[in-house]
Simulated scan of single mutants.
Amino acid sequence: MDFTLLLMIAVFVASLVIQWRLQATFGRFSQVVSARGLTGAQVARAILDAHGLTGVRVEPAPGVLTDHYDPQAKAVRLSEANYASPSLAALAVAAHEVGHAVQDAQGYAWLRVRANLWPVASLGSNLGPILVLVGLGLGAVGLAKLGIYLYLAVAFFQLVTLPVEFDASRRALEFLKRMGFLAPGEMGPARQVLQWAALTYVAALASSLATILYYASLLGLFGRREE
Rank of each mutant, 00 (worst) to 15 (best):
A94F: 00
A94R: 02
A95P: 06
H96W: 04
H96L: 06
E97F: 03
E97R: 02
V98N: 02
V98K: 00
V98G: 00
H100V: 02
H100Y: 04
H100C: 02
A101D: 00
V102F: 00
V102H: 00
V102S: 04
V102D: 02
D104G: 04
A105H: 13
A105D: 13
Q106C: 07
Q106Y: 05
Q106N: 12
Q106W: 08
G107I: 08
G107L: 13
W110G: 04
W110L: 05
L111P: 00
L111Q: 03
R112Q: 12
V113P: 10
R114L: 01
R114Q: 03
R114T: 01
R114E: 00
A115M: 15
A115W: 09
A115F: 05
N116Q: 15
W118I: 09
W118P: 05
W118Y: 14
P119D: 05
P119S: 11
A121R: 06
L123K: 08
L123I: 12
G124N: 06
G124A: 06
G124Y: 04
S125V: 08
S125R: 09
N126M: 11
L127A: 14
G128Y: 03
P129N: 12
P129I: 01
P129G: 03
L131I: 11
L131M: 14
V132F: 14
V132D: 01
L133M: 14
L133A: 12
V134N: 12
V134I: 15
G135S: 12
L136V: 11
G137W: 14
G137F: 14
G139S: 10
G139P: 08
A140S: 14
V141I: 10
L143E: 04
A144E: 09
A144N: 07
A144H: 04
K145R: 15
K145D: 10
K145H: 09
L146I: 11
L146W: 13
G147V: 08
G147E: 03
I148M: 09
I148C: 05
Y149T: 09
Y149C: 08
L150K: 10
Y151W: 10
Y151P: 07
Y151V: 07
L152S: 09
L152E: 10
A153G: 12
V154H: 06
V154N: 02
A155H: 03
A155T: 05
F156E: 08
V160L: 02
V160F: 00
T161D: 03
T161C: 05
T161S: 10
L162F: 02
P163Y: 02
V164E: 02
E165H: 01
F166K: 00
F166P: 01
D167E: 09
S169M: 07
R170D: 12
R171Y: 05
A172C: 06
A172I: 02
A172E: 05
L173G: 04
F175V: 05
F175T: 00
L176T: 01
L176W: 07
K177E: 15
K177R: 15
K177N: 11
K177P: 06
R178C: 08
R178F: 12
M179W: 13
M179P: 02
F181V: 10
L182T: 06
P184G: 12
P184N: 13
P184S: 11
G185A: 12
G185V: 07
G185M: 09
G185C: 09
G185W: 14
E186L: 11
M187Q: 15
M187H: 14
G188R: 15
G188C: 08
G188Q: 15
G188F: 14
P189K: 01
P189I: 04
P189G: 07
A190M: 13
A190V: 07
R191P: 06
Q192D: 12
Q192C: 08
V193E: 01
